[in-house]
Structures are given as structure tokens and as C-alpha cells.
Amino acid sequence: MKILYSKHFPPKGFAAINLFGIIIGRKEYGSLTKYEINHEKIHTSQIIELLWIFFYLLYGMEWLIRIVQYRHPLKAYYNISFEREAYHNDKDLDYLKNRPWYSFINYYRQPNDGKD
């Protein structure tokens, strides 16, 4: 897994972003923790399952739905099923060893008012 660091990306307030399996960390926040890397690895699994393009389409559509639902972009972000799964399991460094495919579906209806 490739990890790059940037001064300008991802947006401030976010430590990392996963683009097509490449993790980009915000340089000013320092090296990513093992939990942040695990979080992004969970996203990589989701991306692969959904053949890249469908992940980004579903992610964007769900974010728009959550914005309407929660009326707040950050609250919408934390309630995207892909993020719920990743935040809920990023401290479990063995999660990906036994993770069933499409596990994010289990997080679609669970409310989450903030990070786990």
C-alpha cells in the first residue's frame, strides 16, 4: 500500500484520504497512525469490492443523501456507511483478516452522530 504526504490535500481536519488504493496523508499532521492506516485499508477493501468507480459513485450519492438527512456536511460524512464501517473497526488491526465482503451494507441504517 502506497502512502504519500501532501501540504494541501486532503482538506484541513482530515488526516488522510484514499484515492484508488493510494493513501494521501496531510503532511502537517505528521505520519499516519496504525489506526488511520487501518481505516484507509478498510476503504481499500471497499473500493476493490465495488470495482473503484461504483465505490466513488455510491459514496458520493450517500453523502448527498446524508446531507439532506442531517443538514450538516460533516455529520453527513460520519454517517456514510463506508465511513461507519471504517471508523467502527479501525482500532481492530485484525479486522480485515476476517471481514466479509460488502460489510459496509451492515452500517447503512445504523445511526452514528459522530465518530465511533
Rank of each mutant, 00 (worst) to 15 (best):
L51T: 11
L19G: 13
E40H: 03
R26H: 06
Q46R: 08
E85L: 05
I37K: 15
K34L: 15
S6T: 10
H43V: 02
R66W: 06
A76C: 13
H8S: 03
Y29D: 12
F9C: 10
N38D: 00
L93E: 00
W101D: 10
Q110E: 01
K91I: 03
T44F: 13
Y59N: 08
S81T: 06
Y77N: 10
A15Q: 08
Y35A: 09
N18F: 03
S45G: 15
Y77G: 00
I23L: 00
Q69V: 04
R84L: 12
N18I: 07
Y87S: 01
E83N: 10
T44N: 03
A76Y: 08
A76S: 14
I3A: 07
L58E: 07
H8M: 04
K2W: 14
M61R: 05
N89Y: 12
Y102S: 06
N98A: 09
D113A: 07
R71M: 09
N79W: 06
I65T: 05
W63Q: 08
H88Q: 14
L51Q: 12
S31R: 13
W52K: 02
Y59G: 01
D92N: 10
Y29M: 15
M1A: 08
H39W: 03
W63L: 02
N18K: 01
N89M: 15
Y56D: 09
N18Y: 15
E62P: 00
P111V: 14
Y95K: 00
F82L: 14
Y56G: 12
K91E: 04
L4V: 04
F82P: 06
F104S: 08
K34M: 07
E28G: 09
E49C: 04
Y29Q: 07
L58F: 15
I53L: 11
L93H: 06
L58P: 02
K2A: 02
S45M: 08
H88R: 13
R71W: 01
F9M: 11
D113Y: 13
T44G: 07
L4H: 05
G13H: 07
D113M: 06
I24W: 03
P10Q: 02
K27G: 01
R71N: 10
K41D: 11
I80M: 14
I42L: 10
K75G: 03
Y95P: 00
H8V: 14
I53W: 15
E85S: 12
Y95V: 02
L19S: 07
E85W: 10
I53S: 11
F54A: 13
K12N: 07
S31Y: 03
